[in-house]
Write a protein that binds this DNA or RNA. Sequence first.
DNA 1: ATTCCCGTTTGATCTGAATCAAATGCTTAC
DNA 2: GTAAGCATTTGATTCAGATCAAACGGGAAT
Lengths: 231, 231
Amino acid sequence: MNTANALKKTALFSGMDDEKVALFASKSLVRHYEKGEELFAMGDQAASFFFIIDGWVKLYRITREGEESIINVFAPHETFAEAAVFGPMQRYPVNAQAVEDTTLLEIPRSLFVETIRADSDLAISILGAIAAKQHYLIQQIEQLTVREAPQRIGTFLLRLCPPGATRNIEVALPYDKSLIARRLNIQPETFSRAFKKLEPHGVHLQGRVAVIEEIGRLAAFCDVEDRDKPC
Amino acid sequence: MNTANALKKTALFSGMDDEKVALFASKSLVRHYEKGEELFAMGDQAASFFFIIDGWVKLYRITREGEESIINVFAPHETFAEAAVFGPMQRYPVNAQAVEDTTLLEIPRSLFVETIRADSDLAISILGAIAAKQHYLIQQIEQLTVREAPQRIGTFLLRLCPPGATRNIEVALPYDKSLIARRLNIQPETFSRAFKKLEPHGVHLQGRVAVIEEIGRLAAFCDVEDRDKPC
DNA sequence: ATTCCCGTTTGATCTGAATCAAATGCTTAC
DNA sequence: GTAAGCATTTGATTCAGATCAAACGGGAAT
């Protein structure tokens, strides 16, 4: 099955043999959510974690003033909420909502726990996978604190570029601009204006598609070290 | 041994029986660092993670402009760098420096990996411990993005209060104000001014000691939900 | 005790982004 | 096709925090 192949490419499953991955794929539940549907709420019992077959999912919290704080937005073929499932509370610490029509695999905790019990090497590789995610969170903190708006947007765009591409890249924005804005901790108005400040650096916006003339130029402006440095 | 008792209180070791903990304590290395000494640099091979017996350690990165971005500052009896040790790179993704005179336990990766191999239930509890840390990072993102300076400082102070205390609490600042400032992503000047904005809420600063008249009042201002909510 | 150094405070000014307000454009539903 | 309802853009104003500059203060070394 195709899903199994995709699964195997994630950090979480990469240490597993094909047979086991297939087992996971078959024992997990495929579910479809429409844009705007809630997957789970903060405080819910964390019985499963998720693999996105297709679509985009945001994790967010609601502040006391009723504003959304975006924690992360996950892309197709990413897993999320693993930490909640293994955490001491076994509750989701955030809310999750599909921001586009989304198909995902719901993987029950129990299945995973059993597999780990039987194979402790696997546990170490999972430990590694979760650790890697933590690394990403650290980057996000740096991103949010040090950079300013246009550079944050630039970095976001760079991440959307297919690897290897160098010039005249058309990047379709994966979800609403207003969501991208809040994900980057910017107001929609500021986002709109900040995007224009990227034009001198070879980035043009046509509706929902951004065209990047030259990736190196944008990267230089955004001050991104190598796009994914080993540390 | 005393260190073993302290160790057992950390999330990472809480799932281990006394005998094993004692083994860890004995096989690990106790090291002392003076204020300002570097523990490791970004990119170094991550052969060990750490438990702080006494002192304070900052994790930070250097931006291209040469500025420090503070990722976290760890307190006595906390562990850090577990994720790096189990991550796919096995390299530290940040720099670490003692910000006060510090004594710590250096726990080798190998020791841990072997123990997990032999006891996969332990693996699950470690998974949980790392997951909990991730949760903390998420809070930090929220903290840095949503709140403004005086509230960030207030939240920081609240964390330093001994549990159970309610009024007229004297809190000694654990390290330099300028470091606290950057840790909270505030300039030192702004920190100084923002601190004064807490006076109307019952917080007074006397040198390196803050006096909190009433914890509830400060908590209300900072908009902290219950100080450690289960989710 | 005096000096030096560095962390901290205070003051004045600047600026990026938020906010308030309104116009425009795109989708969706009828 | 048209109207309604959002999302996005544009404009004007405000504000929190950064930056620049200078004074202050306390600890360490002499």
